[in-house]
Design a protein around this nucleic acid. Sequence first.
DNA 1: ATGCATTTGTTCGTATGTATG
DNA 2: GCATACATACGAACAAATGCA
Lengths: 75, 75
Amino acid sequence: MGFAIDRHSPVPAWQQLASQLRAHIATLAPQDMIPSTQELVKETGLAIGTIQKAVSALKAEGLVYAVSGRGTFKR
Amino acid sequence: MGFAIDRHSPVPAWQQLASQLRAHIATLAPQDMIPSTQELVKETGLAIGTIQKAVSALKAEGLVYAVSGRGTFKR
DNA sequence: ATGCATTTGTTCGTATGTATG
DNA sequence: GCATACATACGAACAAATGCA
């Protein structure tokens, strides 16, 4: 997938990730799953909390919805 | 102010606080400041992160806006 | 039905950075 | 310079829901 964070950027890591996720989600069909928190931790090297903050933003935007125990999906 | 969290409630602490803050904010005038993160920590006994999550929700709702170094205010 | 692995959700605590007055 | 206040980021633990063997 290639999510990469520039840690020297003035843009916060969670915002960078949120932007990249938005671009990825744009390529998906509704009900498609986005990478799990753990996958994103591995890919980006960010802490869990930082991943959650990025994904929370997308949920707040109504771009995705989460189902506990299953995953997070494009709306 | 009297923000009190019921730790046995099934409702998450951050949601309880967000609800109580909404009620408090309803009594304020625009540009009035809400309690600082540290004040809320003292009043509620919750961790900083939990306070921030509650206030973030209110920001996402457009109910308040934050100015770093000054405080968080009713919109 | 039981148990396990996966995944999201909540909460805690800490440290550091940045902005304001 | 200093105190206050919000913002970012880290790491950890536990709970709850889901799906599958």
